[in-house]
Amino acid sequence: MAKLLKRDGVKRISLGFFILSTILIGLCSNSMAASTTYEPALNKGTVVFKVDQYNEGKWEDTVDRELEPDDYFDGDSDEIGARSKITIKNLAEYKWDLYDALIFFFDVESFIDEDALNQTELFYLLSFLSKDYVDALYPEEHKVWEALTVQWDFETEEFDESPDEKNYILPIFQEPKYYRDLLDDYNKWALGLNTTMLLLGIEPFPILDGDDFLWLLITSGIFTIARPFNSYLTTLIDKLGSDDAEVKGNTLILERKGEEEYIVEVTFSDQGMQSSLVIKNDEGRVIYEIVQDNTDTIVLIVSGVIAASIAGIIIVIMRRRKKFKQ
């Protein structure tokens, strides 16, 4: 009898242990899943950027002798004080396939020199770029939060009333690994097409590694990340296999080689957008810097504080008068 009771006790303990471990594993797996769940931090509104520093001589010696900042960042981005503006209109969930990436990230259309080809060659080449062709070969879709924006290029004067680009899209991939998938698909697609390009006598599409892709993302101006930022960036460089990149907090540091070696530091704002971009030489001297310009926000806050103070003073005076009259 005692043995039976003992057995029962052992069974109960084993059962309890099993249930507890099942719950704990479940909780653990949940918390593990939760830690890799990303969410967008981007809000509607306007962000202004400003070219804060630019050392032309150092740029030519270190980064690129032929290309200037405006070749990477458009507009008057080679002038100190030039400002650009982006207004985020909304945020919605979509799915991106390779075709979307070819157009928005890799900008493959700009690679094709239409003047160097005749009508038939151009038609033939463009058939490889058609949505139907790309979707048939690379049908995989990736979940993305897409922000619809309007954008003003860098300008030294006041912004024009109409934006330079309407319906400018900022994608935030729901998983950083999707960047890797797209990069792999792009490289496969480019390899398949480059033979034709060489036969036609035009420059082939570049084959990119993780570091090149990161640089492409940074200079595209549409590189936006999801929360938690540090985890997102760490996973991203891990998946891309970027040897020359590291993450410190919300900052992505990338080592590049131009004329000489230089360092690119990209800091992300609390919305997941690139809030500052600093290019330094290996001695740590700043060659080029773009920062977020918060003057308007400061003016708005100061105006709000002044208005609130005036309203407060008026209320206090009115109350005192009332008391005095009583």
Binding site: K44, T87, I88, K89, N90, L91, A92, L148, V150, E161, S162, P163, K166
Partner: peptide, 15 residues
Amino acid sequence: PYALIPDNPLPDTQA
């Protein structure tokens, strides 16, 4: 309407 509905797009410009 703009602050509470993420899908609802802001107009293009301030004007």
